[in-house]
Simulated assay, not measured.
Amino acid sequence: MNLFDHSNRDRNDGTRRIYALYEIAHTSVDFSAAACFLIGSVLFLWPAYETAAIWLFIIGSVFFMAKPTLRLLRELHLYRMGKLDTLAKRTD
């Protein structure tokens, strides 16, 4: 059992549920980042909104940084679930 091993997500119903929840979070963050950059880009067309545009770019960058963080957290979560499964099998 390794991190980023595709078989970790299909181990049981619990791992499939966790994987799906993290994918929903990842997709939501992706859309949020894209929206921030799109709206920020449009706001740059008017000098009066330049500060708001800059802030949207910063917020969008934070969202983009959250994406790999979510992936790593998901993989660690699935890995720990596998360790618990292995431990439970040893005690049977």
Rank of each mutant, 00 (worst) to 15 (best):
M1H: 14
N2I: 03
N2D: 15
N2S: 12
L3Y: 13
F4A: 01
F4S: 01
D5T: 01
D5G: 01
D5C: 03
H6T: 15
H6D: 15
S7R: 14
S7P: 01
N8H: 06
N8Y: 00
R9P: 02
R9Y: 02
D10N: 10
R11M: 06
R11P: 03
N12T: 01
D13K: 12
G14K: 09
G14W: 00
T15E: 10
R16V: 05
R17E: 15
R17L: 12
Y19I: 01
Y19T: 03
A20G: 03
L21P: 02
Y22E: 02
Y22T: 04
E23H: 02
E23D: 09
I24Q: 13
I24T: 12
A25H: 03
H26A: 06
H26R: 09
T27H: 08
T27L: 11
S28D: 06
S28V: 03
D30N: 07
D30F: 12
D30E: 13
D30G: 14
A33L: 02
A34E: 05
C36H: 11
F37A: 10
G40F: 02
G40C: 00
S41N: 09
V42A: 08
L45H: 09
W46N: 14
P47Y: 08
A48F: 08
A48W: 08
Y49I: 00
E50S: 10
A52H: 12
I54Y: 13
W55H: 15
F57S: 06
I58S: 05
I58H: 04
I59D: 10
G60T: 09
G60S: 05
S61L: 04
V62M: 14
F63G: 09
F63M: 13
F63L: 01
F63N: 08
A66V: 06
K67P: 01
P68S: 09
T69L: 15
R71H: 11
R71M: 11
L72G: 03
L73Y: 03
R74I: 05
R74Q: 13
E75H: 06
E75C: 02
E75K: 08
E75N: 13
E75M: 10
H77A: 02
H77L: 06
L78P: 01
M81R: 11
G82N: 13
G82L: 10
L84K: 14
T86V: 05
T86I: 09
A88M: 09
K89G: 03
R90N: 07
R90C: 02
T91S: 07
T91I: 14
T91Y: 12
D92G: 15
